[in-house]
Amino acid sequence: MQQLIDLARAGAPSLGSGASSAMAGAASVQVQQGQVRATPSFLGKIVANLKYGDKVQVLQTQEPWAKVSAPGGVGGWMHLSALTEKDVQLKAGSAEAKTSATSDELALAGKGFNAQVEKEYQQKNKVDFTWIDRMVDDTVTPEEMQAFLLAGDVTPEGGAL
């Protein structure tokens, strides 16, 4: 029974573009808020939030977590899905981006399907994003999650909170 579950886990697709279990060295944050945690656990305390495009050094990986250090003395565990081995460049016009924009090592933030494309689509089709904007603003903090589990007598794998 456990074997089947392990198999299902092993069959999961790769975690975000460019992330891999063998990630080492430099990596970039590929999400808007890259959570850095004190421990490699989904309930681990968040010690810092890194921004899209921020660079980190991966010191070690413990699938699916990476121990990272970032400028400013930031250090902790990030889920691999937040990271890419590509160098994320925020400005499309920058010199570095221009010389290597099409290389496999570089990802341009805001390139492709982006806010500009959405605006064009919205104007053409009269699509309403009011509720979508409301949805994405509603974020539950790790502390609220912990309190919710505790209050509901829900005990996560690996022991009580």
Binding site: P13, Q30, A109, G112, F113, F129, W131
Partner: peptide, 17 residues
């Protein structure tokens, strides 16, 4: 897999709408 998480997000917003 070529879609970055950012592009995935923009696709998802419109699918949601």
């Amino acid at each position: 897999e070529d879609f970055t998480p950012e592009q995935e997000y923009y696709i998802g917003r419109s699918v949601g709408a």
